[in-house]
Amino acid sequence: MLTRHMFAATVCAVTASFATAEEITLPNQIAWTAYGTGSAGYNQSIAIGAAMQEKLGVNLRVLPGKNDIARTEPLRQGKVQFSANGVGGSFMAQEGVFQFGAENWGPQPVRILAANNGGTFGLSLAVAEEACEKAGKPGCEGFTYSDLKGLRVAWIKGAPALNVNNEAYLAYGGLTWDDVEIVEFGGYGDSWTGMIDGTVDAAFAATTSGRVYEAASAPRGVFWPPIDPANAEGLARMQSIAPFFSPITATVGGNIDGTDGIQTAGYAYPVLMTYSEQNTDLTYNMTKALHELYDEYTGKAPSVDGWSLDKQNFTWVAPYHEGAIRYYQETGLWSDEAQAHNDKLIERQNALQKAWEELKAEAPENWQEAWEAKRRKALAAGGFEVVF
């Protein structure tokens, strides 16, 4: 099996088979993971892959994964070079929390190439219109997240990012998981099958997901409860759970297209990422291809426009790969502020990884409890923000 350690060493050995166009040099085949088929992340990956095939002769193989672990494990093993992941595979993997806090995982040395920061679609906890009636709000008139009390909310096994997102929306409404009925699903797609067949009343999604459009046209319908950007207390509760969220106006998505949009929340999604050890030249050229082929794939999938160069956020919650930084330096977009922020994030990762190795040497009986305490202590000692 080709491990991720071996992959970086083999990249230079296959340069003779590289396809080159407009000074973009990539292998004839690239592989990355993405969210499940029908998701916004998968659809955007396919659109980007079509542009790479047409202009560079490069075949992008997209492997769908049901959850954060399924998307990140192939990257860790070196079976793929990149992942169009979300906050689970980037921020939470970096932090070593939830599924990434298991003894066989730990804080991961993730690095970003680019992210979709389009802001035209939301990442929201949707409610079946039928469920509004159960809450005494027929037609969903006046329905807010506080009205989810007692209703059925999706919980995805092995997908802490999705579950934390749901928890954040519940917190906005002044609720916790104890206030709702938890319905477990094996993957994101399964939860939306449940939204259609009536198994669950609320599930998380990008507003542009294919499953959302499917559910919006089904008998139960889809409703997006509003997020009020002036509700400081609600937003504080939300961001205490998920600091990567911010209020936005979503203008595209199921039951949104053709309207003035809805007030909801969002964050960067998808996030094209890799590991720190990935070959710098490969990462540089992948970043360059993503941006310089933008005109070829823009408009080819819902919200794919958010990958544009002018929408990149260089002070997000996870660091950029040095290969990507090289490209952004060439474009004149990388600043001293961005570099200082990146360096601080790498210091944060190093502190977490050091704490992880120390705990492994201690071999505590209750790993989860010990790691949670060790992690928070390491972050506080290093002067880093303690999240989770």
Rank of each mutant, 00 (worst) to 15 (best):
Y297Q: 03
T274C: 11
T280R: 15
F244L: 09
Y284M: 06
W356Y: 12
S276T: 08
G254Q: 02
W307H: 10
P270S: 10
L309F: 11
E277H: 10
A268I: 06
E358R: 02
W316F: 15
N350A: 14
M273S: 09
T274V: 02
A318R: 01
N342L: 04
A250P: 03
D305L: 07
S303V: 13
W356R: 04
M286F: 12
T315M: 15
Q312G: 00
M238H: 02
E358N: 12
T251H: 05
A318E: 12
A236I: 05
A361T: 11
S335D: 10
T331I: 07
L272S: 00
A268S: 13
M273A: 10
Q263A: 04
E330Q: 15
V304P: 01
L293W: 06
P302T: 09
W316P: 01
S246T: 14
K344T: 11
L345A: 02
I256R: 03
T249A: 06
E347V: 02
N255L: 01
Q349F: 07
E362H: 05
D336C: 01
I256L: 11
T315S: 14
T264P: 00
R326M: 12
A324F: 09
K311L: 15
E277V: 08
E347R: 07
E277L: 12
A318N: 08
L359W: 01
P243M: 10
Q263D: 00
L290M: 14
Q239P: 00
Y297P: 01
Q278W: 02
A242T: 05
A338G: 05
S308N: 13
G266S: 15
G323N: 09
T259Y: 09
N342H: 06
L345C: 01
Q329I: 08
L359I: 04
E347P: 00
A324P: 09
R326G: 04
N342I: 04
V252M: 07
T283G: 03
E330H: 07
G332T: 13
E322M: 09
I262Y: 01
D281S: 14
D295K: 11
G261M: 05
G323L: 11
I256K: 04
Y275F: 15
V271L: 13
G332D: 12
A242G: 00
D336W: 03
D336F: 03
G261V: 05
K311S: 07
L309P: 03
E322L: 11
G299S: 06
A236N: 10
T287D: 06
K300P: 00
E330Y: 04
G299M: 03
H291W: 06
S276R: 14
P243S: 10
E322I: 11
L235T: 06
N285Y: 14
Q349A: 08
D336T: 14
H341W: 13
G254S: 04
V317P: 00
V317L: 15
W334C: 09
L293R: 06
N279D: 15
A340S: 15
S246P: 03
A265D: 00
E277C: 08
P247K: 10
G266M: 04
E357V: 09
R237L: 11
L272M: 12
E358S: 06
Q239F: 02
Y320E: 04
V252N: 01
T251V: 15
L333R: 15
N285I: 05
I325R: 12
L272E: 01
S308R: 14
T298H: 05
T287P: 06
N342Y: 03
